[in-house]
Write a protein that binds this DNA or RNA. Structure first.
Length: 434
RNA sequence: GUGGCCUUAGCUCAAUCGGCAGAGCAGCGGAUUGUGGUUCCGCAGGUUACGGGUUCGAUUCCCGUAGGCCACCCCA
């Protein structure tokens, strides 16, 4: 027998970690609703062309990291697992004629994304994102609203010190000119550029700006900044986004090296960083405006903006916080039904089933072990109560034992559910336990 | 995709110079009749990631593969 394991770059979310994800999903869903975003669910795979066009054919995400699904002979389509949510959502916007809905259309989705990258801590081939998209609003106010929404999410999740990095990358009117300026600036230094950067000089020159190569630091510091060369509409838009952020009390850092090197990305670009984590994988989430994307995928020209926040990385950042090692109590049963007669599993199962029907989280000890072991197991499950079935059942009674208090009382089977409901309530409010 | 470090029980880790692979935790059972998280005793759990090589003998040394981690790359 070979021993199987989860594919490279994927992992099983065991109950404790799944609970941490569930908590983030709950916060995301609550916040999205509060801000007026409705949930959408798109397929986890699409026609590969949706990503090739929607994400950009010359990006790493598509060129190197796309999970392509081998086509079946009887079907001509070529599919790929979604590497990010925006392209699929915009495809759905167009397909379902959402331009006839009241604009902007505000959508949210949380789910797994797939990229065939080399795995590393905080970098997985299947990872989860909380995504927000507002399609049909040119901004600038909504840009600030969305950034504030991201900050609010991190704050509720337990990360207060997330930094906002902000930039404007211009639009179709001013970016081409900027790129020419940039190439003209780097060209005389082409010989001194690291090989990788030299290669990118003509293909995707804006990428040089976020290079971490120390050899680039000096050159980049003096490089022309797009923020100085924005066209008038972009300049006004950027200034307005900043005004709105300041009105909301959001602190941010202008980061000229923050780049989205894709044609349809426009104007506002932002990322969320957790400070103190040097090196890679410190980007918790990011987003930006994509005023060209709807048209690129075949719709009418429509502005849009959104973000994707990596759930995996939030969980990691949370775990790194000292003292965050609180254990999840969820999943503990309120009551465990045990019995003096190890063989009498049918009675225990029946009593537990009736309690569940009454809405109580109960389990029966279905093992054939002696009472002491059953109690021990219940206590280790952190159950609040045990119901002990014994001879008193002949009179219609059971023993109800409060494990925390150590007290015990004789209770009529008919009253058991009611007693447990009120007992659980006093446990929750009576506190002491946490 | 490139380079480096690592991989022993479910988990965290031992094993001297190359000489019979161990502990703690977790699990299960028991400690004179139906009362718990402690304690004590016991049981189970391993092709030492996988495949080769060197050697009388490999967890240990060498090579390859897989997986993890770190840096690059990319990004979430």
């Amino acid at each position: 027998m070979p021993t199987y394991r989860a594919p490279r770059g994927t992992r099983d979310l065991l109950p404790d970690e799944r609970a941490a994800f569930r908590r983030l999903e709950t916060i995301a869903s609550m916040l999205a609703r509060r801000y007026g975003y409705r949930e959408i669910e798109t397929p986890m795979f699409e026609d590969a062309a949706v990503f090739e066009r929607g994400v950009g054919a010359v990006t790493d995400v598509v060129e190197k990291e796309l999970f392509r699904i081998a086509r079946r002979t009887e079907e001509g389509d070529s599919w790929a697992l979604r590497p990010e949510p925006t392209a699929g959502i915009v495809r759905a916007y167009i397909e379902h004629g959402m331009q006839t809905w009241p604009q902007p259309v505000k959508l949210t989705m949380t789910g797994p994304m797939f990229r065939h990258d080399r795995p590393q801590a905080g970098r997985f081939r299947q990872f989860w994102q909380f995504d927000i998209e507002a399609i049909g609003d040119p901004g600038p106010a909504i840009d600030a609203e969305i950034i504030e929404l991201g900050r609010a999410f991190y704050r509720l999740a337990g990360l207060d010190d997330v930094e906002v990095l902000l930039n404007s990358i211009g639009d179709a009117a001013c970016r081409p000119a900027y790129i020419k300026t940039l190439i003209a600036y780097f060209e005389p230094h082409a010989a001194e550029l690291p090989a990788l950067e030299r290669e990118r000089l003509h293909k995707n020159p804006m990428r040089l700006l976020d290079s971490k190569d120390p050899a680039m630091a000096e050159l980049n510091a003096a490089a022309p900044r797009i923020s100085d060369l924005l066209c008038e509409p972009c300049r006004i838009h950027f200034a307005a986004v900043r005004e709105h952020l300041e009105a909301l009390g959001i602190t941010y850092r202008i980061e000229p090296g923050l780049v989205r090197g894709l044609d349809y990305y426009t104007r506002t670009a932002f990322e969320f960083f957790v400070p103190g984590r040097e090196g890679g994988q410190q980007a918790l989430g990011g987003g930006g405006r994509y005023d060209g994307l709807v048209e690129l995928l075949g719709g009418h020209p429509t502005p849009g903006i959104g973000f994707g926040l990596g759930l995996d990385r939030i969980v990691i950042a949370l775990e790194a916080r000292a003292g965050e090692a609180r254990q999840e109590l969820e999943g503990a049963p309120v009551a465990v039904v045990v019995g003096a007669d190890p063989a009498a599993t049918a009675v225990r199962l029946k009593v537990a089933t009736d309690l569940r029907a009454a809405g109580i989280a109960a389990r029966a000890d279905l093992g054939r072990r002696k009472l002491g072991k059953q109690l021990e197991s219940a206590a280790r499950d952190r159950a609040h109560f045990v119901v002990i079935i014994g001879d008193e059942l002949a009179d219609g009674n059971v023993q109800l034992k409060d494990l925390d208090a150590g007290s015990q009382q004789l209770v009529a089977l008919a009253d058991l559910a009611r007693k447990l409901v009120s007992g659980e309530r006093s446990h929750r409010h009576g506190g002491g336990d946490a």
